[in-house]
Simulated scan of single mutants.
Amino acid sequence: MTVTDHVRQLLALWGGNVAAVHRELVAEAEREGRAAVVPSLATMQRAVIRDLSAGERAGLRGGKGLRRRFDVYGKRPPTFRNACWEGDHKRVPVRVELDGAGVCPWVTWFVDVATKVIVGVAVTPHQPARDAVLAALRAGISRTGPYGPFGGLPGRVRVDRGKEFLCRAVTRALGAFAVPVEDLPAYTPYRKGTVEALNGALEEMLLVSLPGYTRRARPAGAHPSDPVDTLMPFAGFVKVLLDLSGLVEHRAPSGRP
């Protein structure tokens, strides 16, 4: 037996319940006078297991959310350099010293989807605004010194409804180069999985090893935060971040006021 399109439709209707689909097929065959052509339930169950992947079967039972646990999710066809950039902000869970106080910086960056290269970065000691987005864009688009050699003009930019990315100044700046901004639906981080993976890699590869990391486990009764005089200076953090990003010569601007 082969799982036909009709059987797939019935499986979707019955939430992947093979027994219910078998009863439906038997009832259809009896109405049409051809009961003998319906395979047994065991045969149908073997066919479903053979022809449908574990992800497809899970999706029939629980929808797309359950299917993603089994299948490779978010794959995109290969493309060319600068066809699409993804942009995002990340609040860095590391306290650094700035003017005698401890602050958690923010990173605003753009990454090329095809090559996974970080093309532009801006680091701010406060929640970023449109100036950070424009600074990171300038670093990514310009390839003359001190910027480059990566970057250029993107075919489009993909963001997730951040007001700083969608403000009039940014859309006008990209519109001058005829670069469309793709505003993704809310709560869909998988739609810009390249930059989200970069955010995770930053924390796993760098931030956990820095002094002042705020998510480090502490013994009960310990002081809630490291003293300011033990923290890394803000300028030192920017240099470490750019060293890891491969942007030492890129010299992405820091957004210190």
Score class of each variant (00 low, 15 high):
Phe110Asn: 09
Thr171His: 01
Gly212His: 02
Phe110Leu: 12
Pro78Ser: 10
Val159Ala: 07
Val123Arg: 08
Leu41Trp: 00
Cys104Ile: 00
Asp226Phe: 03
Arg50Lys: 09
Gly175Leu: 01
Val228Tyr: 00
Gly200Cys: 05
Thr43Asp: 04
Glu249Gln: 12
Gly255Leu: 03
Phe150Trp: 14
Pro227Thr: 06
Ala29Tyr: 00
Asp229Asn: 10
Ala122Met: 09
Asp71Met: 11
Glu182Tyr: 08
Arg156Gln: 14
Leu198Val: 09
Asp71Tyr: 05
Arg91Leu: 09
Gly155Tyr: 06
Gln9Ser: 14
Arg130Ser: 14
Thr79Phe: 02
Trp106Pro: 00
Thr43Trp: 03
Cys167Thr: 07
Val238Ile: 11
Leu66Asp: 13
Arg191Asn: 12
Ala54Tyr: 06
Tyr213Asn: 03
Lys163Cys: 10
Tyr147Phe: 15
Gly74Arg: 11
Arg46Gln: 10
Pro77Phe: 05
Val159Trp: 06
Leu174His: 00
Thr43Ala: 12
Met44Trp: 03
Leu198Ile: 04
Gly63Thr: 07
Glu196Asp: 11
Leu134Met: 10
Ile49Glu: 11
Gly155Asn: 06
Val21Arg: 05
Leu134Arg: 04
Asp99Val: 00
Ala235Trp: 01
Ala197Gly: 14
Arg130Gln: 12
Gly221Arg: 04
Pro185Glu: 04
Glu164Asn: 03
Glu24Tyr: 03
Ala54Phe: 05
Ala136Asp: 02
Ala42His: 09
Thr115Asn: 14
Ser40Asp: 06
Val103Arg: 01
His89Asn: 01
Val113Leu: 08
His223Glu: 11
Phe234Ala: 10
Pro105Tyr: 00
Arg34Glu: 08
Asp99Cys: 00
Arg256Val: 10
Met1Phe: 13
Leu10Val: 10
Gly63Ile: 08
Ala42Trp: 04
Ala12Glu: 15
Ser245Lys: 02
Gly102Gln: 00
Glu32Met: 07
Phe237Leu: 13
Val37Arg: 14
Ala135Gly: 05
Glu28Gly: 07
Ala12Thr: 10
Leu137Glu: 01
Leu41Ser: 00
Phe70Cys: 08
Gly246Cys: 05
Arg69Lys: 12
Val195Met: 14
Leu153Gln: 13
Val3Gly: 07
Arg23Pro: 01
Arg81Thr: 12
Leu206Val: 13
Thr124Glu: 15
Cys84Ile: 12
Pro39Asn: 03
Arg23Asp: 14
Leu210Pro: 03
Pro149His: 14
Ser225Asp: 06
Val37Asp: 12
Arg95Asp: 09
Asn199Pro: 01
Gly148Ser: 09
Leu206Tyr: 01
Arg50Val: 01
Glu203Ala: 05
Ala122Asn: 15
Glu97Arg: 11
Lys239Tyr: 10
Thr43Gln: 13
Pro227Tyr: 04
Phe80His: 13
Leu98Val: 02
Pro233Ala: 11
Val72Lys: 11
Leu66Ala: 15
Arg46Pro: 01
Ala186Trp: 09
Met1Asp: 12
Leu242Glu: 15
Val240Met: 06
Tyr187Thr: 08
Pro128Gly: 10
Asp131Cys: 11
Thr124Asn: 14
Trp109Phe: 13
Glu32Pro: 00
Gln9Lys: 15
Leu198Glu: 13
Phe80Gln: 14
Gly145Ile: 08
Ala217Phe: 06
Arg215Ala: 11
Glu97Asn: 02
Gln9Cys: 10
Val133Thr: 06
Arg61Phe: 03
Phe234Asp: 03
Val3Lys: 13
Val157Asp: 02
Ser225Gly: 01
Arg216Ile: 09
Arg76Lys: 07
Pro211Tyr: 03
Leu198Gln: 13
Gly246Trp: 02
Thr230Glu: 15
Asp131Ser: 14
Ser142Ala: 12
